[in-house]
Design a protein around this nucleic acid. Structure first.
Lengths: 206, 206
DNA sequence: TAAAAAAGCGCAATGACTAAACTTTTGCAG
DNA sequence: CTGCAAAAGTTTAGTCATTGCGCTTTTTTA
């Protein structure tokens, strides 16, 4: 997220203070993205961004934890939705299937804006910049432990069961595999077919 | 690998010049490891290491690409051995099986020195330091593309086949999953069982 | 309306890393 | 052996992200 198009409407800030704060934050994110797209991530200094947003560098770091974070709106309930996808999956749907659906859904949410020409540029920026690619990847894999627990709970396995951990890890890794492919849906089907069959062998009925 | 104990004997340098160069490199690596183990990675600056090895900071960076690299001897033929594990697997052994063996072998090579008390410290240092953990992880996953090609070639699939890419990615990711487990062999069996069955479903006989 | 709380600011510092220009070693051709 | 070029090392000065500190300005709230 962070290419300008909103997917989820946040609750509007209440006071003037919070409004201004959000505005400053937005100015920074906007300035950053514009500069990154025009000159490339590495050619733009944090000073340039602060100047463009007309704030000090110190202020920039009060709003964002680092240079890479300027590009991504933080998705706080990503973990919750991931866990929910497993826990509240419809009866008869396997866990890998549920995870595949969830990934594609997130993917589709983004693809809504596929028409927006800036979306392609944004994606390319992230995928072509190691620092940003790694950061995005970490945002996902950060939730591996939570997903592992959710899966283990769902099948009644011990919390540290290796096959549950493996499924969680692999499913999360599948994201970037899918992302770089021209036909995401087909890529997701193939990657998750592997997990689907492997999982079914040891956990029939889940 | 960098904790002092040698696993593979490199070809000895020929001239005095190369010997001295290698010596400087070794002094740096030794100093770094010792300081890191004693004070922690983040509490030690590159300046401290350079001083301890009695060279300048610039020299340090002529020998190592970055602070993290000081801890790892570069394993250049890691990629070749990975590809070979797939290509030259004994008949009747599936690709996931071959990869599991190869991972365990590498693991075992290291565990030879399990008696060395410094080995445990070394491992803990790497696993407890985000920068080092990520670096080690990247050293593995760097070879994903090569492994994908090797697998695709082995089964006669197109070079960019998604299921081959998925197997490659997952197998490489399995390493860190296994590494953090108390019983590596069992963890490897469980993680690769998933891949084994999933792979067999779409590529019978490989 | 008087603080308390929060947003910003400038400045100085740290720590990893690089570029440039210079000195010392080392290897080797004559 | 001599002398010269390449390689290793040094110093110095710089960039860039990121943090801490102390100060000013706003906004909130008691």
């Amino acid at each position: 997220m962070g290419y300008g198009g909103r997917v989820t409407e946040p609750t509007e800030p209440t006071g003037r203070r919070e409004r201004k704060k959000a505005q400053t934050r937005q100015s920074l994110a906007d300035a950053a993205l514009e500069l990154f797209l025009e000159h490339g991530y590495d050619q733009v200094g944090v000073k340039d961004i602060a100047d463009a947003a007309d704030v000090s560098v110190t202020t920039l770091f009060k709003h964002f934890s680092g240079k890479e974070a300027l590009v991504f709106d933080q998705d706080d309930d990503l973990e919750a939705s991931l866990v929910a996808a497993v826990r509240e999956r419809p009866p008869g749907r396997s866990i890998p299937q549920a995870l595949r659906e969830h990934l594609l859904l997130k993917q589709t949410q983004l693809s809504i804006h596929a028409a927006d020409p800036r979306f392609a540029d944004f994606t390319r920026l992230v995928e072509d910049t190691p620092a940003l690619r790694d950061y995005a990847h970490r945002m996902w894999t950060r939730h591996e432990a939570a997903l592992t627990r959710a899966i283990a709970e769902a099948v009644g396995a011990p919390e540290d069961d290796v096959s549950c951990a493996a499924l969680a890890r692999f499913a999360l890794e599948a994201r970037s595999l899918i992302l770089r492919h021209a036909e995401p849906r087909r890529a997701a089907d193939e990657a998750f077919a592997l997990l689907e069959h492997g999982w079914a062998a040891s956990h029939p009925g889940n």
